[in-house]
Design a protein around this nucleic acid. Structure first.
Lengths: 147, 147
DNA sequence: GCAACTTATATAAATATCTAATATATATCC
DNA sequence: GGATATATATTAGATATTTATATAAGTTGC
């Protein structure tokens, strides 16, 4: 049906729309934990790289420094992160994610994977193949976005 | 390089990871408007279908009925939505998105499309083709998720 | 056709979270 | 070493959210 190397042009609007839809679908995750969006966002960031300075966390989230300080204080109270001084800078604080904090993110990730798996099961082998073939390109897209 | 119909199996974890990364990248949208995540989420839902009952909005967001009522009151005060009685049910309220409310979502969507376009420009034609070939399957995935 | 129940939304008070302003301690730069 | 910059903390006030309760309109069984 299709040529070996598919050079059909990619419609950005279409891609954005599909992506928007998929995001909308997967964002509503029941999850038992009652954690706010900002809280989960900070934990997620730390799950990718820990420890991080408060100032680094502020840079990614669009909230004030004060909000992050208070949020991290609550997260520490709940045992999801742990703050320690930065040996190389006496002013700084290094926020470490705890196993419990990582567990929150991991369990949400597992839950999401299961939901996606169920949907993917409804696709044809050809459709699954098409998505699989696009994964390397999508991965590179994400890399480009991280710079 | 690849067979005509690619039946290589799709690794759900890999897909979920890429998707998670892309979401993380596109979620931090500076946008001038200072609207909370929940606020944008309600507006976005209404941009896809309007009017909607309060109770329908509650079903999608994970907040209490009270929170939605108050949020919609604020949105109405700001001219982003308009509430009208439901002729078929005297108890119900139909929340309509206003042109101004739709404008907020549209401008964010345009902004996102521009950001995605910039990233896509960094891909090779083959990579763009691979993503384009996966769009129909991704669209169907979203459809499956909506049921 | 009405009493009991359910459904849809509103309100009030308590709590949680956020912003703005300011303070404090450590680093850095002449 | 003093001036300035940087990293975080604190405080107070504004905003948003939950919990519990209220109100009003629909539905059901009799």
């Amino acid at each position: 049906m299709e040529p070996k190397t598919n050079l059909s042009e990619l419609n950005v609007s279409d891609f954005a729309m599909v992506f928007e839809e998929l995001t909308r679908i997967f964002i509503r995750m029941p999850s038992i934990e009652k954690l706010s969006f900002t809280t989960l966002s900070v934990l997620h960031t730390l799950s990718l790289r820990s420890p991080m300075r408060l100032s680094e966390l502020i840079a990614t989230k669009q909230v004030t420094q004060s909000a992050i300080t208070q949020l991290v204080t609550r997260l520490e109270r709940d045992g999801l992160v742990e703050c320690r001084p930065d040996p190389s800078d006496g002013r700084a604080v290094l926020v470490h994610i705890t196993p419990q904090g990582a567990g929150v993110i991991d369990s949400r990730r597992s839950e999401r994977i299961m939901r996606i798996a169920k949907l993917i099961a409804g696709l044809s082998p050809e459709e699954r193949g098409a998505i699989a073939s696009a994964l390397p390109a999508l991965t590179r897209l994400a890399q480009l976005g991280n710079t």
